[in-house]
Amino acid sequence: MTLPLIVPMLATPGTLPPASQDSRWAYETKQDGQRVVAYLAGDGTVVLRARSGEVITAAYPELHALGDALGGTAAVLDGEVLALDARGRADFQLLQSRMGLAHAPARAARKAAEQPVHLVLFDVLHLAGRSLLALPYRQRRAQLEALGLHGPYWSTPAALVGHGAQALAATREHGLEGLVCKRLDSVYEPGVRSRAWIKIRNMHGVDVIVGGWLPGKGRLSGLPGAVLVGQRDAAGALRYVGGVGTGWSEQERTHLAHLLGELATGTCPFTPGPRVPGAQWVLPRLVGEVRYSTRTRAGMLRQPSWLRLRQDLTPEESAAELPDTSS
């Protein structure tokens, strides 16, 4: 059977729906992985396509058996490929060693034996020769669950109807990335970033010490395009944890440029010094507060954004210390 190519529907960043509308929404855990659409032809084969449309089937050989999961029934399924850590939580850092191996099947097979992935399925878009795109989420979800897709490397996690505040609190309590809210009457809109799906990312805040900056370009010429930040380790060394390039108003950037200019130095304050072409170093005297989604295993901040300058704190007073990532 020839299956239609379907571009994934996307969620819009936002907040929980109003409490008065809570019962009209379903809530799913936001996963930190690689979005895929799985095409099961009903002949035992499966084709996995990334959000870009690229065929990535060969990168995940442990998922090839999904092609037999529905027997002769053809289907198009929406989901996310995850790499799970020892606690069973998605770890994007682990997944990165598996991504990009679609053209290296031998290496992908070795990686699959070392660090198998898991595919979570959350929508069915086409089933047994019929498009389900125009059906409301409630009906598509019921049909997906009826398929019983639970296997060694794939599953269909439950979706919670209503109780959004409790669901979001649970993701925070368990250190999960966040929540996706889906309106029960929403149709599937391929390629659309829709308000019918809302994603809420759990963000963390931390104090960091500014040790350098990168000049901005274009309209930001002469201003910092990003600041390079770090945290002290247990021995007191300033360890680089990433660059922060968003979160300021133009006025705040101008003020920050003045402060950085006064602290200019030719010596990198980080140990070890990061390889950041074009970096301008400063004396580590400024403390800022940033928010971020998660950390890599090396302690680097993912998706950091600037919150505020902590002029009430000196670097010595800042209590934030780089967490131990050796385990």
Rank of each mutant, 00 (worst) to 15 (best):
G247I: 08
F92C: 04
L168W: 13
A237E: 15
G175A: 02
V117K: 04
R110A: 15
A279Q: 05
R110P: 01
A41K: 01
W306N: 11
V76Y: 00
R130Q: 15
K199N: 09
L133G: 01
E321N: 11
G148A: 06
G67N: 03
S305P: 06
G236T: 11
Y188V: 10
A41N: 07
T254W: 03
D22N: 01
E54S: 03
V276Q: 10
V76A: 01
V227H: 03
R239M: 01
L121Q: 08
P274C: 09
A146D: 12
L176E: 08
R295K: 12
G42W: 07
R219N: 05
L3A: 03
R201Q: 09
A142I: 03
D324P: 09
E250Y: 03
G72Y: 00
G44M: 09
L228P: 06
I6E: 12
P323Q: 15
Q231K: 13
G218S: 13
A142V: 09
A196E: 10
A170Q: 10
Q96K: 12
Q31C: 00
A11V: 01
R232V: 07
A235Q: 15
P277R: 04
L260S: 10
W154P: 07
R98M: 09
A83M: 04
L214G: 03
A19S: 07
I6Q: 11
G164S: 02
V229D: 11
D43A: 06
R107G: 06
V282K: 02
P8K: 11
Q143Y: 08
R219G: 00
L40C: 01
L147Q: 09
